[in-house]
Amino acid sequence: MATEERVRRDDRAHVFHSWSAQGQINPLPIAGGQGVEIWDYEGKRYMDFASQLVYTNLGHQHPKVVAAIKEQADVLCTIAPSYANDKRSELARLLAELTPGDLEMTFFTNGGAEANENALRIARMHTGRHKVLAAYRSYHGATHGAIALTGDPRRWGSEPTVPGVLHFCGPYTYRSSFHSTTPEEERDRALAHLEEVLMYEGPHTVAGIILE
């Protein structure tokens, strides 16, 4: 049975945590969770305002999610992309019912960084263009192409990265790069800035713009 001492010891000895100076962190061992709460091994409860990495939208241990995982585990735990599968096909169909226009196909990936890597490649192959624009104050993942798209200091340690990625200032009323005083003014000035960047870079050279 897991104990806080054992979890903490094994974590510090064997787990490499992302975006951290390993010798300066002391991760909190978590024993469980339910709904909006998680708790440690002493039973102290914490409100998970961040939804972990913004992905536990339904809360922790939602009974329908737990039941679906158990049901699928009894049938088939994994399947390669080269095969057709009932659950994957059903999800793709349901997504197609929600997406606008003729966006009827879904390319499934293992996570956000991989999705952005493939979006970068698809945009370049489809348009035959090289440049991609991304906003400052953004995060798109830690893989080589995704970190190139990222517009915050976490990118610096990985540079040089993928060539052809350029950054622009997006709207941010709280600390405006455009000295705006209202959200509407910030919007208009940010769009004018983006249009100017596109003009200077050459719209015919830009494969796409990625936004969070």
Rank of each mutant, 00 (worst) to 15 (best):
E195T: 09
R8Q: 10
Y139T: 03
V65N: 07
T181V: 06
N57A: 09
S18W: 10
L194W: 02
F178K: 04
M125T: 07
Q72H: 06
G170E: 05
F108Y: 10
M199R: 15
C169H: 15
S20I: 02
G170N: 08
E185Q: 15
A123D: 03
P203F: 02
W39N: 08
A80P: 07
V66W: 09
N26K: 06
F49K: 13
A119M: 15
S158R: 10
V36D: 11
R137W: 03
R8D: 08
T99Y: 09
Q52K: 10
S89K: 06
E5F: 11
R129G: 03
A148G: 13
D48R: 01
Q24F: 14
L133A: 00
L194N: 05
A192W: 01
F178Y: 12
Y136D: 07
E212A: 13
A115G: 13
G35Q: 01
M1D: 12
G59C: 01
A73L: 14
K87W: 07
G112P: 04
N110K: 12
L166E: 13
S138Y: 07
T150K: 04
F178T: 02
R93H: 11
I69K: 09
I69A: 09
H204E: 15
E196A: 11
S176P: 04
A84K: 13
L120W: 04
V197K: 07
N116K: 11
L198H: 01
R154G: 11
S158D: 12
G33A: 02
P27M: 02
Q52G: 10
